[in-house]
Design a binder for these strands. Structure first.
Lengths: 342, 342
DNA sequence: TACCTGCACGAAAACCTTTTCCACAGTCAG
DNA sequence: CTGACTGTGGAAAAGGTTTTCGTGCAGGTA
């Protein structure tokens, strides 16, 4: 080690000086530090890791990094870990088990201290491996094994809060337009909607929950369906922001005003969709960054030997904008409003 | 090494067997391989890296990972590197020089073989460090130092192609609505627009390029301005897809049809905006994935000692959808069309 | 002076792999 | 029979850091 030579001490002493460990004269310590500074010394993390048996590195396997959900989760993970001087090895598995297997081997060969699996979907996924020697935490997409550590948003609670808010601002006839029925998140969100309505002694407006795809086009279409079935409709809870935007546009085309006639609330708080819509949308934020942070925190716990099993549900945040009325509702305006006959 | 013990050979021999190096009897080699398989042996990349003096790891510093541009770039980088068995250390610098400095030190301590800086903006950024011992390539956001290796899309060429396409389908009065004038990309794209028009002997329609912000709201507003200034407008080239979408909506509100009356082309090919718009938007795809891939390729070259300096411009791809007419133009329809009086 | 205590630092092992050099045995040719 | 050559595998060093143990020296005490 050239720092030791320059400071005129042995490598062991230099190491102690740099890490503040042994009993050194402060004069010696200062000399070593000065030498390190002059030489721009950076301790070789490979050597350190080899010795300590751990790398201070964590693997992040994104199943579907293209999707917009894993990105904020990833950033939350990275945020939490970098604070603990832990680096993140990023792998994009693309939902392909073979790729994932390859990445897993690569990460294990690099002696990562732990692995975070950030999925792209809401439905549970099979565990990434069995009998692994390093801890694994699943973020956003839970593992199908309930004993695995998973961190996910509370979809049901979010939808419940959304509808509770609609009822809280005086709405009574609430419709629900969502995505494909087979998604677990769709099921959970519908459950939350029903629970909020039931607690208020209300029924869902319209022919029932409307299931379609996650698109604006479906939202526009659903708006017409809903209005035909229930002309007195005064609120719609949507499965995501794109649908909400479509519903808003559809209602607008039908001559209704948002939020005066119908309040609309979305889900996801995808800002480009919700905040920049023609009428900025109230929505439910799943705190994905927080999901990532918490997952990283649990991983650190597990690395330190205090592993916690099971799935952890993180609360969603209500984000209120104009589409549910920034102020108290002012009643339906006078004058004719174009509505399709029932 | 337990594999060596189990196979009844020395560690050196085991290493040779696993890497296919020395002159070994095939029987011995098979025995070692079998032992490694049974024990699930994965060579310690830390030890290997320590010995070889390189880590087969590359640092990726994203200046603004929240932005939607750096994500595809990142994925392209990861794609290209993982094929070469190189792992990616992901750091989110958030555009904060202090954070970046911290990450830089962390990466250097980990003995990365190179660094890719994936920015969030189009304007050049200051180099991440000087006198670095590892090669650096800037992707998407170039370095201000022209001697640094940078890989960026050809904004000007993309805009040129967009307008050339508009002219190619018979449009003559082309407006340009873009983002904030001080952005380099805005300047470059406008340059491409002017060049395409000039080559056809045409002038820009409207009062000149309209500069605003990157929003749909601005697009809607600009549509009205443009139409008031040039009622014969038959095409608009937009600075990005959000603006294009706004322009389309604005024109629609004014009673014009897209693409029959006015063709519209966006920029970015942000699919959720362009492909899912009410009228799917033709747009310019900057091939961000390819930018990432090429940047990674140049980094690998530099790691192998064949560094190339300077900025490399990658061509954009035209993505044609309905907003510029999927078929030949059919002429303006008969009947009154609501237009503001000039 | 002889011995002990404690401080400050050095020496060396350990982490795991790769690679180079060397040794041993067997074979073939002279 | 001896020398040389080839095929196979072992021994050891190197890579940079941390940590443990040991050593030398100074100062104090008997």
């Amino acid at each position: 080690m050239d720092v030791a030579v320059r400071a005129g001490v042995s490598v062991g002493t230099a190491s102690k000086a740099l890490n503040g460990h042994g009993g050194l004269r402060s004069e010696t310590r200062a000399r070593v530090l000065a030498a390190a500074e002059e030489l721009g010394f950076l301790p070789n993390a490979l050597a350190r890791g080899l010795l300590r048996g751990r790398s201070f590195t964590v693997g992040l396997i994104a199943s579907d990094a293209v999707g917009r959900f894993s990105i904020p989760v990833m950033l939350g993970v990275e945020d939490a870990l970098s604070a603990g001087r832990i680096a993140v090895l990023f792998c994009d598995g693309r939902g392909d088990p073979i790729r994932e297997e390859h990445y897993l081997r690569s990460l294990l060969a690099r002696r990562v201290d732990g692995i975070i699996v950030a999925g792209g979907q809401t439905d549970p996924r099979p565990p990434i491996g069995s009998g692994l020697t390093v801890p694994v935490v699943y973020a956003w997409t839970p593992s199908t094994d309930p004993m695995d550590a998973s961190v996910v948003p509370d979809h049901e609670g979010g939808a419940y809060a959304a509808v509770a808010h609609l009822l809280g601002v005086g709405r009574q006839r609430v419709g629900h337009v969502s995505g494909p029925q087979q998604f677990r998140s769709v099921e959970l969100r519908a459950k939350g909607v029903f629970r909020a309505l039931a607690e208020a002694g209300l029924q869902l407006a319209g022919p029932g929950p409307l299931y379609g795809d996650w698109s604006e086009a479906w939202g526009r279409q659903a708006a017409a369906i809903l209005l035909r079935s229930c002309p007195e409709l005064d609120a719609v809870s949507c499965g995501n922001d794109e649908i909400a935007r479509g519903v808003a546009d559809g209602l607008r085309d039908l001559g209704l005003r948002v939020p005066d006639d119908v309040a609309i609330i979305g889900f996801d708080n995808w800002e480009i969709m919700s905040a920049h819509a023609r009428v900025p949308l109230s929505t439910v934020d799943m705190s994905l960054h927080e999901v990532g942070r918490v997952a990283a925190g649990r991983l650190l716990q597990a690395i330190n030997g205090a592993a916690v099993h099971g799935t952890q549900y993180l609360p969603c945040q209500l984000v209120l904008r104009e589409s549910t009325g920034l102020q108290a509702r002012s009643g339906r305006p006078p004058g004719p409003v174009a509505r399709p006959s029932p």
